[in-house]
Design a protein around this nucleic acid. Structure first.
Length: 889
RNA sequence: GGGCGAAUAGCUCAGUUGGUCCAGAGCGCCUGCUUUACACGCAGGAAGUCGGGGGUUCGAAUCCCUCUUCGCCCACCA
C-alpha cells in the first residue's frame, strides 16, 4: 500500500469529515431493542445563552470518553443532550439587548418579550450544540430536548401539581433573597455568600421614657427605618430592666417595644439587637414570636419606599445607609463604628447584593423529599467520585431548607396556579391544563404572573427527557440511568435535587454514580471567566491543535478531584503535547502502512495468533507483553474514572515503547533486509491496532482515521463500535519484559557514553560487555544498529582508555575510545559513581544487618533488598577495576 | 465560626495497602543530530533538603501531631 498520508497530521478537515460520517452511520444512536445492557448519561444541559467555554469542553470530554469506553465494552449507550432555558440568565441577556435598543421589557410587553427571547434562543441554543459536535461529543442527538419544550413543560406542571396535591408545594409570606437588579426572588442556593469588609455601627436608641438609651449594634443601619422592636436575651442581666420598656426610634419617630428573645446572642455586639422583621430572617422569626409588625421599607429596586421618611424616600439602599448614619451622628446617637467582616449574599447571576425581603412566594417543602435521597447515599447506593463530595451532599440534605421556586420573571414555566377573581370565593385552581374557570366557584380566574425557578425543570430531566409523565418505552429502557458527570458548583442546584425528584416521582435514583470533576482555572488558579478575560476558547484550541489535542490535554491534565490549570496566554504549553502525540501516531501509521501490504487478518486477543510463538523474537514478545500490560492498566483506569492514568498509559505505550523502540527495532525486518518480516508486520499491526482502540475514547478522531486504514478491516467498520480489548493471558510475558529492558539499558548506556565523549554521531564504536547475556547475543544486531556499533564482544575489558558503565544486573559495559578519551574526565566520572554506590552499599548493609528488618519485613522484600545489594557490590567492583585499568589516582 | 482538601523539578502535575517506579511524567531549559515515519522529531543531559518542625516504625513523599501558606464547602452573631 502506498502511503498517501502527508507527513503532518491536519486534524481540521479530517475531524469534520469523521464526525459527519459517524452521524450518517447513526453510530451515536441508541437502540432500545438491542438486548444489550444500557448505559445512560444525562448531559448537564448547557444554558441556551452560553457559548462553549472550557468548562463545557472539560465536562463534555469526560462524558464522551466514558461513553465511548462503555459503548466499546458492549453497553447500549444513551448520552442524552439538551439545553436549559436558564430563566434569569437568558432574560438578563435579552433585557440587555433591549436596553441597547433604548427600550425595556415593560415597554414591549410580556408576550412580545417572550417572542423576542424565543427568537434569540433559537440561534444560540443551536450554536452551542454545534460546538459540542466540534469536540467530538457522541450524543444521541435525535432525542435532544429543551427545557421549555412542550413535553418538558408538561412534566413541570405534572410535578408541580403532584407536589401541591401532596401538600409539598405551598405559598407563603417569608423572608426570601431578593435581587433588586433582576427584581426577582432567589433560592438560598442562588444567593452566594461572600465575605466582605463592612462595619458594625453601634447606634443609640433612645428610650421612650426620655431617660437614657439602649445601644444596638448593626451592620445594616438603613433597615432601622423598618424596625418594630429591640430584642435582648431573656437572661441578659444588663438589659433585664429594659424589657417591656419602649424605644422611640429616631428618624421615623416610632415607638417600638423592647422584647426578650432567646434567639439573641448576648455575646455579640452590645447584646441588644434591632428587630426588622421585613428585612432579616432572624428578625422575622422574632417578630413572629412577639406579634410584631413587619414594615417593608424598600421598593423592588432596593430603594426606600413610601414606608420610609419623606427625606429618604427614593434613595438607593447604600445611599440611605450613609444618610441614616449621618443623621444618627448629627443627633449624637452614633456611639461608635467598628470594622466588621461578614458574609453577605450576592445574586449568582448578576452579583448584586441580595436584599432579604419579606415576600409572598411559592415554596417546596424539602424535608420529606430529602429523606430518601439521604438514605440512598447512606446505604451506598448513591456514590460520589471523589468520595469526599458525598459529605457535602449529606450535609446539605441534613440541613435542607425549603425551596423558593417562584421567580418574578417572564422567561420560564409559568406557575400553573389560577386565582379566582370572585372576591367572595378566592380559591386557588392548581391545574395540569390551562384553567379557564375557578375549580371552586366556576368564576373567572387569572394565572399567577410568576414563573418557576429554572432548576424546577432541570431536576426532572432524568425522566422528563424520556417522556415522563407518560409511561414510555424510553423510560422503561433507560431509567434509572448510570452516571452523572458534572461540576461541583451545581451539586445542590441540580444533582441533589435530581436525586430527590427521582425518588419522589419515579421511586428510584436517577443515577448511582456522580462524578464531580474540577474547575478550569488559569495559572493563578483563578476560575476562568469572561469578566477576568482569562478564558480559553475551545474552538480556537480545536482550530489550532485539533479536538483530539484538546481532549488529550483535558483528560491527561486532570486527576480525579483536582482542578485543571491552563495558561490562557500560552496555549502551546497546554495543548502542544496532544497535537504532537496525534502527529506521532499519524507518522507511526505512515511507516506501518508503507510497509504492510496485503491484508493482516484481525485477530482475537492481544497476541497475533497468525504467528507461531516460536517465531517471535525477543522484541516481539516484549512489545506484545507491554501491549497486554497496557490493556490491563488502561481498562482499570477508565473503569475508575482515572482518565489521566488511562491516557498516559496508552501514550507511554505508543510513543516510548512502540514508536521509540519497537518500530526502530523492526525496521530492517519491515524493509525486507532481514528475515521475519511477516512476523514483525503481524505483531506491529496487532499491537498498534489494540492501542488505537485503547486510545479511542480519549482521541476519537485520529484513532478512527488510522484504524480505518489498517489492512484487514471492513470498509464500513468504525472503531467506535469495535470491541474493547480484553485481557489475554497468552500475551503476558514478564520474562521478555525484563530481558528486553536490559537490552534497552545497554543501548542507553552506550549512547550516553557516546554523547558524553562527543563521539561523532556517524562513527561506529566497539563495545565490550563483561559477561555473556543470552538476550544480548540474540539481539546483537539490534544493539549494533541502535547504538551504532562496529563490534560487540564479551569478556574482560582491555586496559584501553574508554567509557565505562554498569548495568542494573551488575554487568559491565566498556566502550574503547582510543585517544579520543579524556582519561581524567573518565576517572572523575567513575570516582563519583563509586562514591555514590558505596554510600548506597553502606546503607544497604546496615539495613540487612538490622535483625529487626530481616525478621520483621516480608521475606520477598528482604530478598529483593539482598539482590539490590549484590548488584550494587558487583557494580562497585567493576567500576573499581576500570579505575585501576585507567590508572586513576 | 464549623468542616474538608492541597503543598513533590522553573511551570502543570503523577506517586493507589509504608518496602519492588525514596524520587517520576509532560512542558520549559542545555548539548548534539537534515539517521529514507515524524524537527509537532531523534539521542543525551542539568535540575527537587517531596512546605517547616516534631513523632511512630527496622524502614516515611506515604501514617500521627503541630506550624505556615493556598483553595473549597457550609453557616440567620445582627
Amino acid at each position: 500500500m502506498t502511503p498517501r498520508l502527508p507527513p503532518q497530521y491536519q486534524p481540521g478537515p479530517i475531524e469534520a469529515d469523521l464526525y459527519r460520517w459517524w452521524t450518517e452511520e447513526g453510530l451515536f444512536g441508541v437502540d432500545r431493542d438491542s438486548g444489550r445492557t444500557p448505559y445512560v448519561i444525562m448531559m448537564p444541559p448547557p444554558n441556551v445563552t452560553a457559548s462553549l467555554h472550557m468548562g463545557h469542553g472539560l465536562n463534555n470530554t469526560i462524558q464522551d470518553v466514558i461513553v465511548r469506553f462503555e459503548r466499546m465494552r458492549g453497553r447500549e449507550v444513551l448520552w442524552l443532550p439538551g439545553t436549559d432555558h436558564a430563566g434569569i440568565a437568558t432574560q438578563n441577556v435579552v433585557e440587555r439587548l433591549l436596553m441597547e435598543e433604548g427600550t425595556t421589557r415593560h415597554d414591549v410587553g410580556r408576550e412580545a418579550f417572550e417572542a423576542r427571547v424565543w427568537d434569540y434562543v433559537a440561534t444560540t441554543g443551536a450554536t452551542i450544540l454545534e460546538q459540542l459536535e466540534a469536540i467530538g461529543a457522541s450524543c444521541e442527538w435525535s432525542r435532544t430536548y429543551f427545557t421549555l419544550d412542550a413535553p418538558l413543560s408538561r412534566a413541570v406542571r405534572e410535578a408541580f401539581v403532584r407536589l401541591y396535591e401532596k401538600g409539598l408545594v405551598y405559598r407563603g409570606n417569608y423572608i426570601i433573597n431578593w435581587c433588586p437588579r433582576c427584581q426577582t426572588a432567589l433560592s438560598n442556593e442562588e444567593a452566594e455568600k461572600e465575605d466582605v469588609a463592612g462595619s458594625l455601627w453601634h447606634l443609640r436608641y433612645p428610650l421612650a421614657s426620655g431617660e437614657g438609651h439602649v445601644v444596638v449594634a448593626t451592620t445594616r443601619p438603613e433597615t432601622m427605618l423598618g424596625d418594630t422592636a429591640v430584642a435582648v436575651h431573656p437572661e441578659d442581666s444588663r438589659y433585664a430592666r429594659f424589657v417591656g420598656e419602649r424605644i422611640r426610634l429616631p428618624l421615623v419617630d416610632r415607638e417600638v417595644p423592647i422584647v426578650a428573645d432567646d434567639g439573641v446572642d448576648p455575646e455579640f455586639g452590645t447584646g441588644a439587637v434591632k428587630v426588622t422583621p421585613a428585612h432579616d430572617p432572624l428578625d422575622f422569626e422574632i417578630g413572629q414570636r412577639h406579634g410584631l409588625a413587619a414594615i417593608d421599607i424598600m421598593t423592588p429596586e432596593g430603594r426606600i419606599s413610601e414606608a420610609g421618611p419623606a427625606s429618604l424616600r427614593g434613595l438607593d439602599r447604600s445611599e440611605a445607609r450613609t444618610r441614616v448614619v449621618e443623621a444618627f451622628e448629627k443627633a449624637g446617637l452614633l456611639e461608635r463604628v467598628e470594622p466588621h467582616r461578614h458574609a453577605i449574599g450576592h445574586c449568582y447571576r448578576c452579583h448584586t447584593v441580595v436584599e432579604p425581603r419579606l415576600s409572598e412566594q411559592w415554596f417546596v417543602k424539602m424535608a420529606p423529599l430529602a429523606a430518601p435521597a439521604l438514605e440512598a447515599y447512606r446505604t451506598g447506593r448513591l456514590r460520589f467520585i471523589p468520595p469526599r463530595r458525598g459529605d457535602d451532599y449529606a450535609h446539605w440534605m441534613e440541613n435542607i431548607r425549603d425551596w423558593c421556586i417562584s421567580r418574578q420573571l417572564w422567561w420560564g414555566h409559568r406557575i400553573p396556579v389560577w386565582y379566582c377573581d370572585t372576591e367572595a370565593c378566592g380559591a386557588l385552581t392548581v391545574s395540569r391544563t390551562d384553567a379557564t374557570a375557578c375549580s371552586a366557584c366556576g368564576g373567572p380566574v387569572r394565572q399567577d404572573e410568576d414563573v418557576l425557578d429554572t432548576w424546577f425543570s432541570s431536576w426532572l430531566i432524568p425522566f422528563s427527557s424520556l417522556g415522563w409523565p407518560d409511561p414510555t418505552a424510553d423510560l422503561d429502557a433507560f431509567y434509572p440511568g448510570n452516571t452523572l458527570v458534572t461540576a461541583p458548583e451545581i451539586l445542590f442546584f441540580w444533582v441533589a435535587r435530581m436525586v430527590m425528584a427521582g425518588c419522589e416521582f419515579m421511586g428510584d435514583l436517577p443515577f448511582t454514580t456522580v462524578y464531580l470533576h474540577g474547575t478550569v482555572r488559569d495559572t493563578q488558579h483563578r476560575k476562568m471567566s469572561k469578566s477576568l478575560g482569562n478564558g480559553i476558547d475551545p474552538l480556537e484550541v480545536i482550530e489550532r491543535f485539533g479536538a483530539d489535542a484538546l481532549r488529550f490535554t483535558v483528560t491527561s491534565g486532570m486527576a480525579v478531584g483536582t482542578d485543571l490549570i491552563l495558561d490562557p496566554d500560552d496555549l502551546d504549553s497546554s495543548f502542544a503535547a496532544g497535537r504532537n502525540f496525534a502527529n506521532k501516531l499519524w507518522n507511526a501509521a505512515r511507516l506501518i502502512l508503507a510497509n504492510v501490504d496485503g491484508p493482516v487478518r484481525p485477530l482475537a486477543g492481544n497476541a497475533p495468533d497468525v504467528v507461531r510463538p516460536q517465531d517471535l523474537t525477543l522484541p516481539d514478545r516484549w512489545i506484545i507483553a507491554r501491549c497486554e500490560s497496557t490493556v490491563v492498566a488502561a481498562t482499570d483506569a477508565y473503569e475508575r474514572f482515572r482518565l489521566n492514568d488511562a491516557g498516559n498509559a496508552v501514550y507511554r505505550f505508543l510513543w516510548s515503547d512502540l514508536a521509540d523502540w519497537y518500530l526502530e527495532q523492526c525496521k530492517p525486518r519491515l524493509y525486507g533486509n532481514a528475515s521475519g518480516g511477516d512476523v514483525a508486520r503481524a505483531v506491529l499491526v496487532k499491537t498498534f491496532e489494540v492501542a488505537l482502540r485503547l486510545l479511542h475514547p480519549v482521541m476519537p478522531f485520529i484513532t478512527e482515521a488510522l484504524w480505518r486504514q489498517l489492512p484487514g478491516h471492513p470498509e464500513a467498520a468504525s472503531i467506535m463500535r469495535a470491541p474493547w480489548p480484553g485481557s489475554d493471558a497468552r500475551a503476558s510475558d514478564p520474562e521478555a519484559e525484563r530481558a528486553f529492558m536490559l537490552v534497552q539499558e545497554l543501548i542507553g548506556a552506550i549512547r550516553a557514553i557516546r554523547s558524553e565523549y562527543h563521539v561523532d554521531p556517524g562513527k561506529p564504536v566497539r563495545v565490550r560487555i563483561a559477561w555473556r547475556n543470552p538476550a544480548f547475543e540474540a539481539e546483537a544486531e539490534t544493539i549494533r544498529r541502535l547504538a551504532k556499533l562496529s563490534d560487540l564482544a564479551f569478556g574482560d575489558p582491555t586496559n584501553e582508555p574508554g567509557g565505562h558503565d554498569v548495568l542494573s544486573d551488575g554487568n559491565g559495559v566498556f566502550v574503547p575510545l582510543g585517544d579520543a578519551i579524556d582519561v581524567q574526565r573518565e576517572c572523575d566520572r567513575l570516582g563519583q559513581e563509586v562514591i555514590r554506590l558505596d554510600k548506597l552499599i553502606a546503607g544497604q548493609r546496615r539495613k540487612l544487618a538490622n535483625e529487626n528488618f530481616v525478621t520483621r519485613a516480608p521475606a520477598t522484600v528482604v530478598e529483593h533488598e539482598r539482590q539490590k545489594l549484590t548488584a550494587w557490590e558487583e557494580q562497585s567492583t567493576v567500576l573499581a577495576e576500570k579505575r585501576q585499568l585507567l590508572g586513576c589516582g
